[in-house]
Design a protein around this nucleic acid. Structure first.
Length: 224
DNA sequence: CCCTGATTCGC
DNA sequence: GCGAATCAGG
């Protein structure tokens, strides 16, 4: 699997959105977590809340010269059976990872959470309706798009077309050739259009009068 | 153990 | 440029 414009853009978008390398790798498929991280670094984007690099001490005089290299050569003799043959079909498992629809109800109590930005199976962004990514004032009119992956979705809203102005509601399932996003004009202040806001933000009805089928994006677990 | 990202280095 | 192996912290 090679790093096409599409895949690189997806990586970039997801990485900047706070998705973990694992999630990105899973979404892209055919690449390992390491590949994603490596590529991310090569792209220049980096760091973000990294659990490891949390410590940033200034040890200018601590160990300036000590730089032992060569670490792997010996381990070749007894390699671990860690096989990562790259699954062609990631098959989004609803049980394990992937963004759980953490129903961001606008009026569901005080939302003290600093940022609710999770990435769904399609790489779409979930976020509380309140915080609409403040920055990004300069929205240069993107006349030319990097080239669509296929003519099937040429006129549909792809991951790359997502902005704060279009509805991010996923249409279809990730991985499908025609997977895309709603793309309608958003309900101002929300990540979705008016129609999909109605789907995303269900009013909490009194007990007993609940609507049984909570329509979630992707229509629930994939049946295959 | 699991997870995370960072880094190295052979390819 | 790529990514497995490895490292290192949570």
């Amino acid at each position: 699997m090679s790093w096409t414009e599409e895949r690189t853009a997806t990586l970039k978008k997801m990485w900047e959105s706070g998705a973990t390398a694992s999630q990105i790798a899973e979404e892209l498929g055919g690449v390992s977590r390491n590949a994603v991280i490596g590529k991310a670094h090569r792209l220049g984007l980096k760091s973000r809340p990294s659990p490891v690099k949390a410590n940033e001490k200034k040890k200018a005089a601590a160990k300036p010269a000590a730089k032992p290299a060569a670490k792997k050569p010996a381990a070749k003799a007894a390699p671990k059976p860690a096989a990562r043959p790259a699954a062609p079909r990631p098959a989004p498992a609803p049980s394990g990872n992937n963004a759980t629809p953490s129903q961001p109800l606008p009026n569901a109590g005080k939302n003290d959470l600093p940022k609710i930005v999770s990435v769904g199976p399609g790489g779409f962004l979930r976020q509380g309706p309140g915080d609409q990514q403040a920055p990004i004032p300069p929205a240069p009119p993107r006349r030319l798009v990097p080239a669509k992956p296929s003519p099937e979705i040429a006129d549909k809203t792809s991951l790359l077309d997502l902005s704060e102005k279009v509805c991010r509601w996923p249409m279809g399932h990730p991985g499908e050739p025609d997977f895309h996003f709603c793309g309608e004009a958003v309900n101002p202040g929300f990540p979705y259009c008016v129609e999909h806001c109605g789907r995303a933000y269900q009013a909490q009805l009194p007990r007993g009068a609940r609507r049984p089928p909570p329509p979630l994006p992707f229509g629930g677990p994939r049946v295959r």
